[in-house]
Amino acid sequence: MNHDAYDDNYIRSILNGVKSIAMVGASPVNVRPSYFAFKYLAQRGYDMIPVNPGHVGKALMGKPFVASLADIGRPIDMIDIFRNSSHIMPVVEEALKLSPPPKVIWMQLGARDDAAAEKAEAAGLKVVMNRCPKIEYGRLSSEISWMGVNSRTLSSKRAPVPTQGMRLSLNRTSFGGGQTAASDRAAKNKTEST
């Protein structure tokens, strides 16, 4: 699996396929990226669970924080990890102990641990690293185009008007696998130099 650049169909199949997402490192502070992503994904209809031992007893968008993945107590489709690269492995190891294990491990923008990814893939999980599910959902639905972002997709079909809580179609035509060649190359060079 090439983790320097992802085919849009790979990302699309994950975002179309998962229903519940546990966010490890979710923050109740409303200027943190994890808060943005949690709120957006909840508004797009995902069943979100905030995981952060420092905030047990509080809730995020009405969802109570749990201290660990084991405390969720029901099957989860995807683990979205909002932690630095150095803290990824223990979360993946914890996720693999769940029964049933999750289908997807997703590491946030800036987070990458190739050894942890290999371990999860060996157990049959799909892995995404150094991406944000909010950005990818916004891109594949072209909702992010409001911000002048290159969605790298085209469509001649009329889209529904997005409303709160609505799942958007992610099945637009991607071009070139959805990669922005120059930016992907720069990310790869950065990974190799660190």
Partner: peptide, 12 residues
């Protein structure tokens, strides 16, 4: 978005 796509950028 159109100019970003034509130039091969991420956004404009």
């Amino acid at each position: 978005e159109r100019v970003a796509a034509l130039e091969g950028g991420t956004a404009a």
